[in-house]
Design a protein around this nucleic acid. Sequence first.
DNA 1: TTCTTTCTTGACTGATCGTTCCAGAATGTG
DNA 2: CACATTCTGGAACGATCAGTCAAGAAAGAA
Lengths: 193, 193
Amino acid sequence: MARPKEFDPNTALGKAMELFWRKGYEATSIEDLVTHMDINRGSLYETFGDKQKLFLACMDRYCNGMAASRLSMLDQPGPVLDTIRRFIRGKLQMALADPTRKGCLIANTAMELAPHEKEIRERVASALGGLEEAYYQVLIRAKKQGELRKDQEPRALARYLTTMMQGVIVMHKAGTTAEALREIVETGLAVLD
Amino acid sequence: MARPKEFDPNTALGKAMELFWRKGYEATSIEDLVTHMDINRGSLYETFGDKQKLFLACMDRYCNGMAASRLSMLDQPGPVLDTIRRFIRGKLQMALADPTRKGCLIANTAMELAPHEKEIRERVASALGGLEEAYYQVLIRAKKQGELRKDQEPRALARYLTTMMQGVIVMHKAGTTAEALREIVETGLAVLD
DNA sequence: TTCTTTCTTGACTGATCGTTCCAGAATGTG
DNA sequence: CACATTCTGGAACGATCAGTCAAGAAAGAA
């Protein structure tokens, strides 16, 4: 009869995600992971496969969290564009509340690994596409409710908003002040006016 | 009498910069550098110090190139805002012409190392500040010539433009198409309208 | 030609890398 | 209690890491 695991794979995966998110892929060693996840290296390999498979699982875990976050913030009553403004300002607040300035795992990975790893590039593109699609669906409603001008294209705006927030993440990691970041976001949101 | 070096330190530095720019800091080994720079490891250490000092020298080299590029594109005649538009579109063109999608060394470094390395964070902030300042000087002229509305703040717009381009870099590395990137940039430039 | 200084070549060091493997422990059924 | 199966702990493997060092080569002045 098999001995049950002494660790919870899901909890361990969450811890691995935190570490990869903060340090990146290359700078995170198996030793780092084993210590942070509080499991032994044999269990890590048996449960997750290898370092890259673990990383991919972490990206999935992160994207699941993002998807839930989008659902809870975009499906809200009131003026549609305000929904987007609140969502984006909320995202900025969350980033500003993070003293380690680890940014977004997807953006981090886009920069570090996407140009070199096809499977990772596809995962990143899929994640960004999901975020863009969420904006798009909301902007379509905004268009229908007359909140957008004729020349304001939902798809273009959705892509733009996704991109702008990536830029905010880069500036945040570079050390830009909270005040400056808020100003940048407000300036960028002017595209919706 | 000393034997002269068989390699040109400036040429070697340029090659190191290319490699760090493409692969990042952690993923680039001394072996990679030695091979790519076409010098031997003793010369690398004797000339540049160590890996991190070499990296910092590469950042300086990159920033010098950026500064020259800004000068040559921002000081131009004609409507001032068009100068910025051309500069940004030119930057996008340069990025799109790069099959390796290596992005911008400053943005890459902001994401990979800035949160963890104080000196690197300062260098990154300085570089981004220089770019922002260039936009700012041009936007002040635009304001004076009546090309900006009263509510359009040069400093806010300068920060915003710097940020938006970081976002474009992330999306480019993530695999976004040229068409989509052009649309994003045009949408983002609408803030200047 | 000799001598001094510096360069190149590449071996070497100690540490760490990702991954595999083994001994002993723990689990639960028969 | 015995047994089969799985888990934990952590050593070990082969490779690579950043950085150091020694032998021999090259340069040019005396």
